[in-house]
Structures are given as structure tokens and as C-alpha cells.
Computed example of a mutant assay.
Amino acid sequence: MKRILFPTDFSEAATNAFVHALEFAKIVQGELVLLHAFELPVFDNQFFPENYMIIYESVELSQFEMFKEEIPKLRAIAEERNLDKIRMTHRLMDGNLLYNINKSIKDDKIDYVVMGTEGASGWSEFFSGTNTGNVLADIDVPMLCVPIDAKFKKTETIGFTTRFRAKDKKALKNTIKLAKMANAVVKCLYVKTSKSDVDRSTIKNWEEDFENEPIEFFVIDSDEVKETILDFILYQEINVLTMVTYKRTFFEGLFHPSLTKKFANNFDVPILAIPMED
């Protein structure tokens, strides 16, 4: 059974992402590990020699009480969606969020992470300078990143962006497995810029390798990579976009500070980021 880590701060963004986590667990026949991490305040105990432990214990207690109050709300959401049979376990951990996520990935043998994000005005901000972006850059398991405006829709079409690297093929095979579990199709996009070095024979080999799979390949000539991906999501009715991260270098190369307003205001589909070494 697949194990899915769901870090939450019980915010609106996290609650929205929880619905995606439940539905994803249903697709992969997995279970959820709910993680709430909090950082204790730093005090110089020479100024609080008597109250030092009381302060820490009160913070821990308040976090525990909130955790205890919020978990039933998440279980109620699961019941409303008839997904209350999905097994859920809970972790309340003090310390740095990224450290605790990585600790849980190791200790709980996590296969996927699902995490919400809010306040991003576009993909460049979404993948940098946020908790989600920081986690994405530093974990070694696939991560489903859910923007706050991405309301859940049944997964019927999964997008996959590629540059036809050899390691992309492994990620594509895993994406096809997910698609079959969801009874979905995969639409694979390559944005061929004026600097692209992929030849037609490589593309043809990929098409032949996957000719018996539920997949369709799209090669679009354009130097506007960001806008082309956005249009692809819109016109091909993509429910989830899968991207190979290559330890974030893909995103660093793809995104530029001069995002168009059109692009920045229309990001509303989850991204499944699959980490690969360069």
C-alpha cells in the first residue's frame, strides 16, 4: 500500500489540498500520514530561568489542542466524500517543517507528498520562496503541489512535459501507471524552441515505445514556453500536470521574473513534480 504524507497547517490552502490528497489516495489505493509541524520559540533561558519550561509546555499544549480540534474536521471532509475508509495516521512534530517532512519520509516510508500552497501570483513564485517550493527542491519522492485555487476535478487527463531526456522516460512510465489507476489518459507535451536540439527520430522512437499505452504526444513550436504550457493545460483540459524537476533546475531555467499577467493569474491545476537527478 502506498503511503502519502500530507503536511498541514490547517489553513484554507491546506484544507483544499486535503481533498486532493484523499482523492489521490483513492487512486493509488494508499493511506495518508497527516503531519503538523510547529517550531517552538527561542528564548534565552537566563532571562526566564523559572518559566522556561512552562513557556515551552504551554506552546506544545496549545499546538496539541489545535491538532486535536482540527483532525475531526478533516475526517468529516473524508466522510462527506465517502472516503472515510482511507486509513489516516497522525504526526505532531516540533521543529523545522522541511526537516520533519524528510524525517517522516524516511521513518514512515513515504511514497508521495501532497502539499497545498497559497499566495503565489504565478509559477515562478510558486516554486521559489514558499514552503512548498522549498520542500519541492529538497525531497526525493514525487510531490503533488496544489494551489489554493485548484478545486478538485476528477482526473481524466494528465499532462506530462518532457524534453525527451532518457530519465524523462522513467517518469513518463510512472505517470502512465497512475493514469491507468485513474482510468485517465496522458497528453505529453514538448515545446520545441528555436534552440531545441531534439531531432525527429528521438520523438518517433518515443512514440513507438509507447504506442500501446493511453498516451498522445504533442510537439509545439514556440519560444514562449510558459504561455505554451498554459495554453496546453487550458485547451487540452489537463487536470494534473506532471513535470520532471531535475532538482529544480528545470524550473529555474523555465521561469523568468517577467511573467505575463495572463500566465500569473491562471495557475489553477495541481502539479505532480517527479524528482530526478541531473
Rank of each mutant, 00 (worst) to 15 (best):
129 G>L: 05
143 M>Q: 09
150 A>I: 07
69 E>W: 03
157 T>H: 10
113 V>M: 02
113 V>W: 09
34 L>Q: 01
178 L>H: 00
10 F>V: 07
89 T>N: 11
15 T>W: 06
252 E>A: 09
15 T>A: 06
120 A>P: 01
90 H>Y: 15
162 T>K: 05
108 D>N: 13
179 A>F: 00
96 N>M: 12
82 N>E: 05
25 A>S: 11
15 T>E: 11
137 A>W: 10
54 I>P: 00
38 F>S: 08
18 F>L: 00
196 S>Q: 02
267 F>W: 14
36 H>S: 00
17 A>C: 04
275 P>F: 11
60 E>S: 15
174 N>V: 04
27 I>M: 01
125 E>S: 13
206 W>P: 01
56 Y>H: 10
226 K>M: 13
110 I>T: 09
127 F>C: 00
56 Y>R: 12
202 T>N: 02
55 I>W: 06
270 P>N: 07
8 T>L: 06
1 M>L: 03
173 K>V: 12
228 T>E: 02
259 L>K: 02
174 N>A: 14
249 T>Q: 10
50 E>T: 13
150 A>D: 06
67 F>R: 07
118 E>G: 13
75 R>C: 12
66 M>L: 14
140 D>V: 08
256 H>C: 06
126 F>R: 13
227 E>A: 15
183 N>H: 10
145 C>Q: 01
178 L>P: 08
67 F>L: 07
220 I>L: 08
191 V>E: 04
8 T>H: 05
224 E>H: 15
8 T>W: 07
102 N>G: 03
21 A>L: 00
248 R>Q: 15
251 F>E: 09
228 T>A: 01
228 T>F: 03
140 D>E: 10
234 L>F: 14
233 I>K: 02
230 L>M: 10
257 P>T: 01
108 D>K: 03
107 D>N: 14
223 D>A: 13
109 K>S: 14
173 K>Q: 13
271 I>G: 05
242 T>A: 03
24 F>M: 05
64 F>Y: 14
95 G>F: 04
45 N>Q: 09
7 P>H: 04
237 E>H: 15
41 P>N: 03
43 F>Q: 02
167 K>N: 14
104 S>L: 09
32 L>W: 10
241 L>Q: 07
245 T>A: 11
29 Q>P: 08
151 K>Y: 10
71 I>V: 15
57 E>I: 10
35 L>W: 06
111 D>I: 00
217 F>A: 00
204 K>L: 11
181 M>R: 00
36 H>Y: 12
194 S>G: 05
226 K>A: 12
15 T>N: 08
188 C>W: 06
272 L>M: 04
52 Y>W: 04
270 P>I: 04
130 T>N: 05
96 N>Q: 06
91 R>Q: 13
193 T>S: 08
136 L>T: 12
36 H>W: 07
258 S>I: 10
237 E>R: 11
99 Y>T: 14
77 I>S: 05
62 S>W: 04
